[in-house]
């Protein structure tokens, strides 16, 4: 009997270990795919990969988060406005589905603000007046919730960088935000390799352009 229990335990633990390693393998592959993606088609294939992981790993926000993030980047790589909208909307609905999960609040708010800013960029003339204050509000909240998170500073800095100076943007105003983001990236120690960790390289190169 004892042996049987042991065996069952063993089998179960092996099962879980295998499942975990499956998840880890899948996530590692996904993040590698993301790094290697160049075209919209690559990014969508990566997003699909995360979608498949998410479909198996119920209640785990991590693959859904990366799925949303990948759609955001995919949207930046398509030309048609309607496709950009579709992808940003998809990213937003994925992200909103994990609002009440264990995702760190600051990361949630940052990605939400980022998606909103990209939605605005599809049609700035009609969307910016309403959308920009709302998106900036989310990023500010993200900074307040976790002042050590570099990403809300980077996203806000990037947006400021590309906003014309008469609308309150420009390199001068972007510089302190980006500099702060770069400092924070340096000391960031992701507890887990699948946690949000994007933005560092871009923040550094934008900061250089501000000099």
């Amino acid at each position: 009997m004892k042996k049987l229990v042991l065996l069952i335990c063993l089998v179960l633990s092996v099962g879980t270990t295998m499942a975990q390693s499956n998840f880890e393998k899948g996530m590692t592959k996904g993040i590698e795919m993301l790094k290697a993606s160049k075209t919209a088609e690559d990014f969508v294939a990566t997003a699909n990969h995360f979608e498949r992981i998410a479909s198996v790993e119920n209640n785990n926000w991590v693959p859904v988060y990366w799925n949303a993030y990948t759609y955001l980047i995919a949207g930046m790589n398509v030309k048609k406005e309607s496709q950009q909208d579709e992808m940003y909307d998809k990213a937003m609905s994925l992200l909103e589905s994990i609002e009440n999960s264990k995702i760190e609040r600051s990361e949630y708010l940052t990605l939400k603000g980022y998606i909103m800013l990209m939605k605005i960029s599809v049609s700035p003339m009609s969307r910016a007046p309403q959308g920009t204050p709302a998106a900036m509000g989310l990023l500010t909240e993200a900074q307040n919730v976790n002042p050590k998170n570099p990403r809300p500073f980077y996203v806000m800095g990037q947006n400021t960088f590309y906003t014309p100076s008469f609308f309150g943007g420009g390199k001068d105003k972007a510089k302190p935000l980006l500099a702060n983001a770069v400092e924070l990236y340096k000391v960031e120690s992701p507890s887990d390799s699948f946690m949000p960790k994007w933005g560092r390289g871009r923040a550094e190169s934008l900061l250089k352009e501000c000099e």
């Binding site: 499956n22 919209a40 294939a45 699909n48 979608e51 498949r52 992981i53 479909s55 198996v56």
Partner: peptide
């Protein structure tokens, strides 16, 4: 383009 084809409840697709 970009359709996700997979076996339900698996990573295979």
């Amino acid at each position: 383009v970009g359709a996700n084809v997979f076996i339900k409840n698996t990573y295979d697709g």
